[in-house]
Design a binder for these strands. Structure first.
Length: 712
DNA sequence: GATCAAGTTG
């Protein structure tokens, strides 16, 4: 061992010789040996330590390959892979500089190249190694980095070939090689092959288990990943930090989260920030926001990820105000947000009912000032927030100016047009996109839902068919749901039923939900019954469906059935989500619940509302009491309709804004049918544009019409 | 030498 301080002392002595010759001349001390440099390089904690060492290496051992590789690896670990790469370039470009037959040195060079990010050159070097007159015979140390390079490059054909090499040379069952193979197959999506390699192994290390758990987790099998983790514990394999970091993202149930948390404490891994951040993420996914905050407050040395995780957790819990507050706080504390922090707060802004266009602009401004707008993902997230705050134009402006767009960017812009009922533009973009890249199953959800929102029936069918024939994408439930929606809109309920029957997969609640939605517009007892039966079996806790069903029964005149649905809902303990509508005025948000009297202007609002209702009745509005409470008299029902949060917010907006300005409101649930009709009339008699976002889409009301064409 | 490490689309 060469303790670090000794190397520095030796270096210092050696360097100080010319400046201060001793009065009794001694032979100058020799510069440190390469091996002591290697130790020093590997243990250097920062670039400030590494760079002088690098300089000294250049002076004393410029041609030492072992040292060069050690330096390159360390540069890469400290975040400067390119700095190290230049050290390896001469040997990588001219392998004859590497002694033939010296597998150890060849392995080092291959590994150095992989760690410095030169994956393609590492693979090229490996191929030279394998040539008959080439460098050296690969061994068990050669394969892990080479397989990693294949994964990184996505070159799985090469990966399979290298698997063959490893088998041929007898290294296939080496634990390290086997682990790397499992990782490689997992990243290529061949989780079955990975599982087979795992099952065949006689001796598995903790890394083997962790890799296989990760393989299941990353290929969309979180439940199986958790099950494998439990099996690992049963077989008394001690999990380590990486195991927990791998398994935690699979957890969505509180009891699993608690179990894991206890285990982490038992293994004394709870003090590391990285682990604490992951525990926060786990509880956030379980919906335990108070627990997440408690953990966050308990972290002594919060890093940027801790802050981002907390903001992300608030965004997930639909607590945008808290997310924004924390975002401001961290800036006050001079903690500089990065792209991930910004992604968290932007997502909160996109989804929350209490975020406004103003918030989207503030976040966009911050992204520009901090230069994070150059980042593709941030830019895409900002587009999304503009779309969801109702400003398609701002979104499109950024979209058009982007230097680079990916699948997600296109999908967001397409679904954005869809949400606003502008199906033609959505299709136009989709056609442009098809020339540039292959759409995926989510792009098709975007474009199909755009067709259904805009009532583009033929175009929808065309897209649906081309998905499989042209792009080889297997239709998921969501795609079928869009098609049922399309058929339902056209009133073709029988066709929709046939379509569902012919589905090659089991229809899920999105499909039955579409059919039930169709029954709202085209009431039909038979299909309502059919959709409801399946829905109550598949998703018995969804309160919106009970209410929708009850409303459909009411409109069919089946008052008793409607009542019994409400009773069933109470009996099953299904919690009704309180509806509310938010409106922004002068950078302030105002929230209205049904029958709300908390606003200081309440008296004025209700007086004005009464007047407005009379005006729209004169214009032809008829209150639709299907959407009112049912156990009261009709006159009271009409009154209760008047008090809906949508109407209160709109009237508040009318009173407090200039006559020509657009009113923007946001309802947390689907807009009520009666409010939808009323708003159409309001837009007509007041000559106002009203934009209403609900949980499903945007409604643009203007001159008595709505962009959704009365189907949503 | 192998695993993990805050994150955008319906």
């Amino acid at each position: 061992m060469f303790p670090r301080s000794n190397v520095f002392r030796a270096l210092h002595q050696w360097r100080s010789v010319p400046d201060a010759p001793p009065s009794h001349p001694l032979p100058p001390p020799l510069p440190p040996e390469p091996s002591s440099f290697v130790t020093a390089v590997r243990s250097s904690a920062s670039l400030r330590v590494l760079k002088p060492l690098h300089a000294a290496v250049l002076r004393h051992h410029p041609d030492d390959l072992v040292l060069s590789v050690a330096l390159a690896c360390r540069y890469s670990q400290l975040g400067l892979p390119r700095a190290g790469l230049s050290l390896l370039s001469p040997a990588a470009a001219d392998p004859s500089l590497v002694p033939a037959g010296d597998t150890f040195l060849w392995n080092l060079l291959v590994r150095g190249l992989v760690e410095s990010g030169a994956h393609d050159r590492a693979l090229a070097l490996y191929r030279q190694m394998r040539e008959p007159r080439g460098g050296a015979q690969p061994n068990n140390f050669t394969f892990p980095p080479v397989l990693k390079a294949c994964s990184y490059l996505g070159d799985f054909e090469e990966g399979v070939k290298i698997h063959g090499d490893a088998a041929e040379l007898g290294y296939e069952s080496d634990v390290f090689v086997r682990n790397s193979l499992i990782a490689m197959y997992s990243k290529s999506g061949a989780v079955d092959t990975a599982k087979r390699l795992f099952d065949e192994m006689p001796d598995r290390s903790v890394v083997t288990w962790t890799t296989m758990i990760g393989a299941l987790a990353q290929n969309g099998h979180p439940e199986e990943a958790l099950a494998l983790f439990r099996r690992m514990l049963e077989e008394r394999v001690r999990p380590n930090r990486a195991t927990f970091l791998t398994v935690m993202p699979c957890v969505i149930r509180c009891d699993d989260a608690d179990d894991l948390h206890k285990l982490i404490i038992r293994y004394r891994l709870e003090s590391e920030v990285i682990v604490q951040n992951a525990i926060m993420g786990m509880y956030s996914r379980c919906g335990k926001i108070e627990q997440v905050r408690k953990l966050f407050d308990g972290i002594a040395e919060k890093d940027l990820a801790s802050w981002s995780s907390m903001i992300e957790a608030y965004a997930r819990a639909d607590m945008f105000e808290e997310a924004m507050k924390l975002f401001r706080n961290m800036k006050l504390l001079e903690i500089v947000p990065d792209r991930v922090t910004l992604l968290g707060v932007t997502r909160g802004c996109s989804n929350s009912a209490v975020a406004s266009l103003r918030h989207a602009q503030l976040i966009h401004g911050f992204a520009i000032r901090s230069l994070l707008i150059e980042d593709l993902m941030v830019e895409t997230a900002v587009i999304d927030s503009y779309v969801r705050r109702g400003s398609l134009n701002s979104a499109r402006r950024i979209f058009d100016q982007m230097r680079e767009k990916n699948l997600v960017t296109w999908s967001i812009m397409i679904s954005g047009y869809g949400m606003h009922g502008r199906g033609v533009e959505a299709l136009e973009l989709f056609n442009r996109m098809k020339c540039l890249m292959k759409p995926d199953h989510i792009t098709f959800v975007s474009v199909l839902s755009a067709c259904s929102h805009a009532g583009l029936i033929d175009e929808g069918w065309q897209c649906f068919n081309s998905m499989t024939t042209e792009f080889g994408i297997v239709a998921h439930s969501e795609h079928y749901a869009c098609m049922v929606d399309l058929l339902g809109r056209a009133g073709q309920l029988e066709k929709a039923r046939e379509f569902i029957e012919k589905m090659p997969i089991k229809p899920d609640c999105s499909v039955w939900g579409s059919l039930l939605g169709a029954c709202r517009i085209h009431p039909d007892a038979k299909f309502t019954e059919l959709a409801a039966t399946s829905l109550f079996e598949l998703d018995p806790q969804n309160s919106g469906r009970y209410i929708l069903l009850s409303n459909i029964y009411t409109s069919l005149g089946k008052i008793e059935e409607a009542h019994s649905i409400r009773v069933l809902m109470r009996k099953r303990g299904v919690k009704k989500i309180a509806g509310y509508t938010v409106i922004e005025l002068n950078n302030k948000l105002y929230k209205f619940l049904v029958g709300d009297c908390s606003n200081p202007q309440s008296d004025l609002i209700y007086r004005e509302l009464e007047r407005l209702m009379d005006r729209i009745k004169e214009a032809g509005y008829v209150p639709n009491t299907n959407f009112a409470l049912h156990d009261v008299e009709e006159e009271t029902q009409v009154k209760s309709l008047y008090m809906h949060s949508e109407k209160l917010a709109i009237v508040f907006g009318l009173i407090n804004t200039r006559p020509e300005s657009t009113i923007r409101v946001h309802k947390n649930l689907r807009v009520c049918g009666d409010c939808h009709t009323a708003t159409k009339f309001i837009s007509k008699v007041t000559k106002r544009k009203i934009v209403m976002r609900d949980s499903h889409r945007f409604h643009h009301f203007s001159d008595g019409e709505c962009s959704c064409g009365d189907y949503w």
